[in-house]
Design a protein around this nucleic acid. Structure first.
Length: 271
DNA sequence: AATCGCGCCTGACGGC
DNA sequence: TGCCGTCAGGCGCGAT
């Protein structure tokens, strides 16, 4: 599933094949994504030259002279560069074909992803306007998180996963970062001191950084002839380890549900 | 204003 | 074997 590191890996993988090239044809086979693919998108995008491939949170932005395509991979989405001869698979919902013959092909079984078009500055698009800072930017600091958490009684875990606070921290990373920081996922966000918040921010950055590094193996698949999806692997310390011994203290990892999301923590290491 | 919970959707998996 | 229920999860949105 695409977490921020995989979206970033996707961006890095597709950017060199798209940059500076023009869209020759757009084929949408199923418009029923998270939001319907706009009716005029094919017309809007065709003929445009791609000037930048950016990422904002988990959104990918294909910028052109005439507007920007906004792509989200949802939970099960995947973008790959293919050529003509590559047979269509189930759930291949759209193709963006370039004048080089490369085809950017989107596959998404659950259709939680999206493909939208805007002629305005995408930063002011309703989906992007309210987003918090990038987790790997300097703006995302302990002081920032501390300030953003005062008076908040929400549990720190959903707070950390709130894209309005900081983007790109999904369920897996929230669990892992909280474990590394020794913070109980249920702790009220407003009751975490600055020092511990700094520790948490450091942990978030470390986990994401390590994941992006590991995601480099995923990059290979964009150029692989077999087109294998390639699964993102990461050394998870608590996620999915309910009942198993804590890597630090051997206590059984506890599994619970916070904000409708499965949560894992060590009752002895996290407070 | 903050917070909660729903719903979108398919595939994997377990139980019978 | 096959059917069915359950779970997973990003994230906007409506309700409280």
């Amino acid at each position: 599933m695409p977490e921020l590191p995989e979206v970033e890996t996707t961006r890095k993988g597709i950017a060199p094949r798209l940059l500076g090239h023009s869209v020759e044809r757009v084929v949408v086979r199923d418009r029923r994504l998270r939001w319907p693919v706009p009716a005029g998108l094919e017309t809007d995008l065709t003929g445009q030259r791609i000037t930048a491939v950016d990422r904002r949170g988990k959104y990918l932005l294909l910028r052109t002279g005439g507007g920007t395509a906004i792509v989200h991979l949802g939970m099960s989405g995947c973008l790959r560069i293919v050529r003509d001869h590559v047979a269509l698979k189930k759930h291949d919902h759209f193709d963006i074909r370039l004048d080089t013959g490369d085809i950017l092909r989107f596959n998404d079984p659950r259709r939680f992803g999206c493909l939208l078009w805007t002629t305005d500055d995408p930063a002011s698009h309703p989906l992007l306007a309210g987003l918090g800072p990038e987790p790997l930017s300097a703006e995302f600091s302990g002081a920032f998180m501390h300030a953003r958490s005062r008076q908040r009684r929400t549990a720190i875990k959903p707070h950390l996963m709130n894209a309005g606070v900081v983007v790109g921290v999904g369920n897996i990373y929230a669990n892992e970062a909280l474990f590394r920081a020794g913070i109980h996922p249920q702790r009220a966000a407003g009751r975490i001191a600055l020092g511990r918040m700094e520790c948490l921010v450091t942990a978030v950055k470390a986990v994401l950084q390590e994941s992006i590094h590991a995601g480099g193996t995923t990059l290979k698949d964009f150029y692989g002839s077999d087109g294998r999806p390639g699964y993102f692997r990461y050394d998870l310390r608590v996620y999915g380890r309910g009942g198993q011994p804590c890597v630090r203290c051997d206590s059984p990892i506890r599994q619970s549900v916070i904000g409708q999301r499965s949560t894992f923590h060590c009752p002895r290491c996290q407070h």
